[in-house]
């Protein structure tokens, strides 16, 4: 495994920056520049580079889709949220429509935000492409077929030109796929969700989204610590604050930055990437969640430091 690239990082529903959001960023940048003199273009560039990601960037708005660059010729992605549309466009731009590719897709579950991008995944329409969609859910194929046709969409699933096959996996059983050792694990979420641990080349990556940690017993915690053990990167559902996750939003199937830090520290993981951002959060709110997660990591640290990041659309993490 070489690299992870995020195409969609938002939970539940796509969001977009509004004109008001853009104005707030410009206003913050200008406020920071008030009274400063920029003697050169380099000075100006340095000033902009020193601004926070909430001002100069955005976490983006596509729903879950994460690419794993394996170093091999075949594509590997997790989930088919709206982020799979730009992923597909980029693949087509790289290879052209006349160069068939193989895409391996690992599905955490089949809630809407994790499947909504597939009707807009252009490679699925092109004969010659091979698409293998893996998951543990019994109704995985049904969920994708039923959104792909009338009355929900104008093109029926049967009209897709690619060679599409659904492959059932079993929780806890490791399979070799596209050069990766892939192990799904059952997670707490309405209708069940599954995390995936990918291992290859001495590296381990965990994709664990839409996963609630009820904190009811140490055994459940131990299962996740084992699953995250020594991982180079854990992509973790940190949609809610801890207070929300165990009170008003208990049983909504999501977790918090605090629990992500704790599990990764217990597991000896090297990096925690906060994922599945709350759609009601603007960039400032997500930066606050990230900053607080880093502070909590400092407070609770017992061993080596844990790197904490927050995923944004377009972000790349080298493994």
């Amino acid at each position: 495994m070489k690299l992870v690239r995020f195409w969609g990082t938002r939970g539940s529903l796509p969001v977009a920056l509004t004109a008001q959001d853009v104005r707030a960023k410009v206003t913050a940048a200008l406020r920071g520049a008030s009274g400063r003199a920029f003697a050169s273009e380099d000075d100006l560039i340095a000033y902009v580079a020193g601004l926070g990601p909430e001002i100069t960037g955005t976490f983006g708005g596509h729903t879950s889709c994460v690419e794993i660059e394996t170093g091999g010729p075949e594509y590997v992605i997790c989930d088919l949220g709206s982020g799979v549309r730009p992923f597909g466009q980029r693949a087509l731009a790289r290879h052209g429509p006349a160069s068939p590719q193989t895409y391996h897709v690992f599905m955490s579950h089949v809630h809407w935000d994790h499947i909504m991008g597939f009707p807009f995944f252009t490679p699925a329409y092109i004969p010659g492409n091979r698409i293998r969609i893996y998951g543990v859910h019994e109704r995985l194929e049904d969920a994708l077929r039923r959104q792909h046709g009338a009355p929900s969409f104008p093109v029926d699933f049967a009209a897709l030109g690619a060679d599409i096959e659904f492959v059932r996996l079993e929780a806890g059983k490791t399979r070799e796929i596209a050069g990766l050792a892939v192990t799904p694990m059952l997670q707490r979420h309405a209708g069940d969700s599954y995390g995936y641990r990918f291992a290859a080349d001495g590296k381990a990556l965990v994709y664990s989204t839409d996963s609630e940690h009820a904190l009811v017993d140490l055994e459940e915690t131990r299962r996740f610590v084992d699953f995250f053990h020594d991982a180079d990167l854990v992509i973790f559902d940190a949609m809610y604050s801890l207070a929300d996750a165990i009170s008003v939003k208990a049983d909504w199937g999501h977790s918090s930055n605090i629990v992500g830090v704790e599990l990764c520290q217990m597991a000896g993981a090297r990096e925690l990437c906060l994922f599945h951002h709350e759609p009601a959060h603007d960039d400032w709110a997500i930066v606050r969640v990230l900053t607080e997660a880093r502070r909590f990591e400092e407070i609770s640290r017992k061993g080596r430091p844990l790197r904490v990041t927050a995923a944004y659309d377009g972000m790349e993490i080298a493994l």
């Binding site: 801890l242 207070a243 929300d244 918090s256 930055n257 605090i258 502070r295 407070i299």
Partner: peptide
Amino acid sequence: PVVAEIFDIARFGHV
């Protein structure tokens, strides 16, 4: 102070 920080991070002051 450290526990107060954790309460803030967890948003426990709201509940």
